[in-house]
Simulated assay, not measured.
Amino acid sequence: MGKNNKGGDKNASAGGGGGGGKGGKGKETAAAASSGKKNGLKIKIRHVMCEKKSKMDEALAKLGEGVSFAEVARTYSEDKAKQGGSLGEVTKDAPYDQKFKDCAWELEPSTVDKPKYNWVKTDFGYHIIMVEK
C-alpha cells in the first residue's frame, strides 16, 4: 500500500503500490466500531484518482500542506471530482477493486479537514483514499 499520514507499518504487498509506507493496521478502534467500520456495515469513502503517480504526488503534497481532502479531490482527481471525491457509502462486497477495498477498510474514519488517508495503485490508477466519520 501507499504512504499514510499516520504512524505504524503497512503491508506493502496488499496494496501493490508502494512499500515502506506508514499507517495504522490492526486492532479496531472505538471510532471505527462506532462508525460501523469493519463490522459488516458500510463506510463512507472519498478518493482522489490519478492516472499518473506524479499527479498523485502533487495531491499528496497538498494534503500534507493541510488543504481539505475535498478541495484536493476537486483539483486533482480524474474521477468523482465534482463531489469532492465522494463515492458514498460502500459495503465490503461492493464491486470495487479488491486492493482499493482493502486499503479503505483498514483506514480509521476521519474528516475532510483533518483526513487520515492512504494510497494504493490499482489497474485504474493511483488512489488516495480516506474514510469519513
Rank of each mutant, 00 (worst) to 15 (best):
V90H: 09
K114M: 03
Y96L: 08
I45V: 15
D79A: 12
K44W: 14
G17N: 13
Y76W: 14
G7W: 00
L41R: 12
A104D: 05
T75D: 13
A81Q: 08
I43R: 10
N118S: 12
V48K: 10
D79S: 13
I43N: 06
M49G: 01
G66W: 02
V112W: 03
G8A: 03
N4W: 00
A81V: 00
S13W: 06
G21T: 07
K121W: 00
E28S: 08
T29V: 07
L107G: 06
K82C: 00
E58V: 07
F69I: 03
K10G: 03
E28H: 01
H127G: 02
E28V: 13
M130N: 10
I129G: 09
K22W: 04
V120G: 07
P95N: 14
K10V: 15
G16V: 01
K116V: 14
A12H: 03
K38P: 00
G7H: 01
N118P: 02
G7T: 06
D102P: 00
T122L: 03
K101M: 15
Y96T: 03
G88L: 02
G2Q: 04
G66H: 08
S77T: 10
V48S: 08
K99A: 14
K55L: 14
R74K: 15
M1C: 00
G24R: 14
Q83A: 14
G15W: 01
L107D: 04
N4T: 10
R46G: 13
T75W: 04
M1D: 01
S54E: 15
G21S: 09
P95R: 11
L107H: 05
L60C: 09
F124K: 12
T111H: 07
N4V: 00
C50E: 11
G88R: 02
M56W: 02
A94N: 07
E78I: 01
G7C: 00
Y76E: 10
G36W: 12
S77Y: 12
V131G: 11
A12M: 04
G66T: 08
G88P: 08
K121E: 12
W105N: 09
D97H: 05
G23C: 06
D9I: 06
N39Q: 13
T75G: 10
K27I: 02
K114A: 11
R46N: 15
A73R: 05
P115I: 12
E78V: 06
K42W: 02
E71D: 13
K44T: 12
I128K: 05
A33I: 11
S35N: 15
K92D: 15
D102F: 02
A61C: 11
P95C: 07
A70H: 13
Y126N: 07
